[in-house]
């Protein structure tokens, strides 16, 4: 390609003032060798059609705001170069499995309500809580136990890659369950037993059928499929031990 080429973007749009049905709209967008898909959306907004609505913030795949379906696959629009999508056309849709507020903007409320349900925060031991200025030390090997799960940026691409979430919206879902595993695996955390009720519920790990696409689409290299399916083993183990030893401490 050469600078000055153009690519066609087909965008699935929906507007609350036209609620009957979404519609496709095409835009011819000029681009350079280093243009990202997000920059193409910004070009449309600035120069072609100010009514097109989408979320973005950091432009460098760390804020998790600009997720959308690109040619049917969940992607961060700032993480894709247009030259890699040439010659096009590129099909852009809002993230799958979420209610759409307008154009490419989805309603994240469901995920935001699920995050506290999995206890996605560190629960320090009582002595660490009593001495807040004392550092909680951790070896590199202990950090490696949870590090990849801690890279989650809540971009929700994994939810759009999960047909189980689309079919069963109560499912806690890949990112929330990966963040549960992240805190369970942290040597400084003591909150594991409080997270087990959410883990063991039908809407917890057991709604996952290991499609595995969540891990494939994660832009941060998080492995939610591993987090969830290892927790299935732990959930089954606890179920059996609870049957054999009623009243045991978990």
């Amino acid at each position: 390609m050469t600078d000055g080429d153009a690519i066609r973007l087909d965008v699935l749009r929906w507007h609350p003032d036209r609620p009957a049905a979404p519609w496709w709209q095409s835009y011819e967008v000029p681009y350079r060798a280093d243009s990202t898909l997000l920059e193409a959306l910004q070009t449309i907004k600035d120069a072609l059609d100010g009514t097109l609505t989408f979320r973005w913030s950091c432009r460098m795949a760390i804020c998790g705001s600009c997720g959308c379906m690109v040619n049917g696959r969940p992607e961060l629009s700032c993480h894709l170069l247009l030259r890699d999508l040439a010659p096009g056309p590129v099909r852009l849709e809002p993230l799958a499995h979420f209610p759409v507020i307008r154009d490419l903007v989805i309603d994240q409320q469901d995920f935001l309500e699920k995050l506290p349900a999995v206890g996605a925060y560190l629960v320090p031991a009582a002595d660490a809580e009593a001495a807040p200025d004392t550092p909680s030390r951790q070896t590199p090997a202990q950090m490696a136990e949870y590090y990849q799960y801690a890279q989650c940026i809540n971009c929700l691409l994994c939810y759009s890659a999960c047909p189980q979430y689309g079919l069963k919206p109560d499912f806690l879902g890949p990112a929330a369950l990966a963040l549960m595993a992240r805190h369970d695996a942290d040597s400084r955390d003591t909150g594991g037993s409080a997270r087990k009720a959410a883990r063991d519920a039908e809407s917890g790990v057991w709604d996952c059928t290991l499609v595995g696409h969540c891990t494939e689409v994660c832009p941060q290299g998080v492995d939610p499929a591993r987090a969830i399916n290892r927790n299935k083993t732990a959930s089954a183990r606890d179920y059996v031990f609870d049957l054999l030893m009623p009243g045991r401490r978990r």
């Binding site: 929906w14 609350p16 609620p19 979404p22 049917g72 696959r73 799958a96 979420f98 209610p99 759409v100 507020i101 309603d107 409320q109 890659a161 047909p163 689309g166 079919l167 059928t209 290991l210 499609v211 595995g212 696409h213 494939e216």
Partner: peptide, 28 residues
């Protein structure tokens, strides 16, 4: 109050990604 929204249903979801068809083949 929640904003008005639109959501696509799940009919034919397995046609949307080759990964879904690989998963269904494995289960079948």
């Amino acid at each position: 109050t929640r904003p008005a929204t639109w959501q696509r249903d799940m009919r034919g979801w397995w046609r949307r990604d080759p990964a879904f068809r690989r998963y269904l083949l494995r289960e079948a």
